[in-house]
Simulated assay, not measured.
Amino acid sequence: MSEYEQLTVEKKSPAYWVVTFGNPPINLIDYGTVLDLRKLIDTLNRDPEVRVVVFRSADPEYFLAHWDILKDPSPLAALPPEPDDMSAWAGTLSRLGKVRALTISALRGRARGAGSEFALATDVRFASRENTVLGQFEVGVGAVPGGAPMAQLARLVGRGRALEVLIGADDIDGDLAERYGYVNRSVPDAELDAFVDAFARRVAGFPKAGILETKALVHQAVLPPDTEFTAASKAFEVSFGRPETQERGALLVERGLQQRGEVELRLGQAVAELTPASEGEADSTAVASPS
């Protein structure tokens, strides 16, 4: 029996691992995802041989959709407190960025909100040109993104483009993501798996010490400090609790959020079409913070 609930780990070789997300119906991120990722990160950091880890999805339409806003968040609160008072999710992302191997997101399908934050926390991102959708939709419902994509995107794409992505809250396709620097490359969908595999095997053949020392020096220059994750965590908690955010989130749920369908497929469009609750369209559905 696997030690993971939502992850499948395939060791292509002692130096090269492939991790596949599988949390039907649309690969939402929840408490189980956090626990699995923490176990995996601990295992990777203890392993003397692993050099490169590829993350991919079992669902071609959803890499990691976003946080599950309907799940009970209380199990997260029961976890040991994070350094610098980060949320459990932000702490997981901070750990991921420091893993003792090169981490690669092989993006196919949608990765928005916390799914985008996961991809940004990995070292390298390769995307399907035809079948990748990235985005941070939180501002569209009145919230601040909680996994510090402000810090990550600003370093990757610059101030103006980071603000466009974050405050525009729209969907970003594979080609635009490559032009902006959101991902390293967008590759034709039919070629993505072979391309990522070839790159990973190449890295896996190099001495581990050189990989880790080089990664550490790059991160010394550009990796966000934990204080930036803490600031994002706290801003998210405050913004997520605002009545207008709760109302907009409930309206999205009513229209089909977290279900396979048009809202999830075109979430950037869906948040732009929200009608304020004051006009009578929101219901009383409660949405849950991942703090």
Rank of each mutant, 00 (worst) to 15 (best):
G261C: 06
V271H: 00
I104L: 11
R179M: 05
A204L: 13
W89S: 03
L28H: 05
D226M: 09
M1R: 01
S105F: 00
E178P: 03
I104A: 05
A288K: 11
G22Q: 15
P290S: 04
Y4K: 02
L223H: 05
V263Y: 06
G115I: 03
A15V: 08
S239N: 04
G261A: 10
P149Q: 01
L96D: 06
V139P: 03
D36Q: 11
L166N: 05
T285Q: 13
S74G: 04
V52D: 02
E10Q: 13
K11R: 15
L40C: 10
A143I: 08
S116C: 10
I26R: 01
D193P: 06
F195E: 08
W89E: 07
Q6D: 10
A282I: 02
I167V: 15
A101H: 01
A286M: 06
R255Q: 14
K234P: 04
P60R: 07
F206N: 10
N45E: 04
L7V: 04
S13K: 10
E262N: 10
P73V: 09
A15M: 06
T214M: 08
S128M: 05
M86K: 07
R112V: 09
L212Y: 04
A169N: 00
H66L: 13
Y182D: 07
F126G: 00
L107C: 12
F118V: 12
T214P: 03
N23M: 01
A200G: 00
Y62N: 04
E82C: 08
D197G: 09
A216Q: 15
V238L: 14
Y31G: 02
L212R: 05
P60F: 03
L28F: 05
E178L: 05
A154E: 09
L166F: 08
V183K: 05
K208L: 09
D42V: 14
A127F: 12
V9C: 11
G135S: 06
V54I: 11
E264W: 04
G91F: 10
Y182T: 15
R56K: 14
D171P: 05
R100N: 15
F240A: 09
K12F: 11
D36L: 05
L79N: 06
L265K: 12
F126V: 03
I172F: 07
V50A: 05
N45H: 07
Y4R: 04
P75W: 14
V99K: 04
P80W: 14
S57R: 04
E178D: 07
Q269D: 15
E5P: 01
H219G: 10
E178I: 00
A190K: 02
A270I: 08
A151P: 14
P290D: 07
R185V: 14
N23I: 00
D30R: 13
D170Q: 11
V196C: 02
G158Y: 11
K71N: 08
V218R: 15
T122C: 15
S128P: 03
V53E: 02
R179D: 08
R112H: 07
N23K: 10
S239H: 08
A15W: 00
S57A: 10
L153Y: 00
L120I: 11
E244K: 12
G140S: 03
W89R: 03
G174S: 10
E213I: 13
G147T: 01
G91Q: 12
V165D: 03
G109W: 02
A162G: 01
